[in-house]
Design a protein around this nucleic acid. Structure first.
Lengths: 116, 116
DNA sequence: TCTTAATATATAGATTATCTATATATTAAG
DNA sequence: CTTAATATATAGATAATCTATATATTAAGA
């Protein structure tokens, strides 16, 4: 079952920042990685991702540089800034609050999400 | 900490349908109940809820009727239809898929959400 | 060699789901 | 008598996606 894409609204940025926490990445790589890590629950469109990256850069949450590895084509890599790292911490906490609140209601007021 | 409201996009309808699964409710009551059950993580605005309810009714997912209990004022109650119940089941499954996928990425590819 | 698919980035315009602001009316409390 | 809380409603603004389209490079297959 594919999910309603509108669910993603508000968490896309968090997911992108999270990917960049691990290592610098280029746009296309992020799309592939998100799809693979989520078993294609998230198949972010290029037309969605690139404007988001441009916006994150404008806000100094990421920095970009071009790199050409081993005769390969030129790619635009993104790097998480200190400011971006701080925002990621906040966004992760926000996700926990939000998902716990949803779970509380969907489970009849009992229980909350934990990681096992 | 209050959450980024855009996180709610896509799950608001699910939460409303879930409330109506338990019992018929009127709009204002849903706002209060959601706020209370979520410790004010969700403070749905009237201007957000009523158009959603009208839309759900148009799609035959809920039915409305007016009722005046014990000299009290006239209220518009909403009732979950069979079609609405079926959608709720789907939406709840969708939420689980989505939230598990997000958790998987935010926790470095390990673990998934469970209810404890 | 030629063509197609995959890789890679980019932008314009449409769509959708919220939001804020505003309007109206009733009831309860001070 | 006035204000706050209850209750429903709609218009217009905003924000975050989407689809469609454009361009260019590289790899693979016919």
């Amino acid at each position: 079952m594919s999910i309603d894409k509108s669910l993603l609204t508000g968490s896309t940025t968090t997911l992108i920042l999270k990917l960049l926490e691990e290592k610098d990445m280029y746009g296309y790589e992020m799309i592939e990685t998100l799809a693979q890590k989520s078993d294609h629950t998230f198949d972010l469109k290029a037309g969605t991702l690139y404007p988001i990256l441009h916006n994150l850069e404008k806000k100094s949450l990421v920095e970009s540089y071009e790199k050409k590895a081993d005769n390969e084509r030129l790619r635009k890599y993104y790097h998480l800034t200190e400011k971006g790292k701080k925002l990621l911490v906040e966004k992760q906490q926000e996700w926990i609050s939000f998902s716990c609140a949803v779970n509380k209601i969907l489970n009849g007021g009992l229980g909350y999400a934990t990681i096992s």
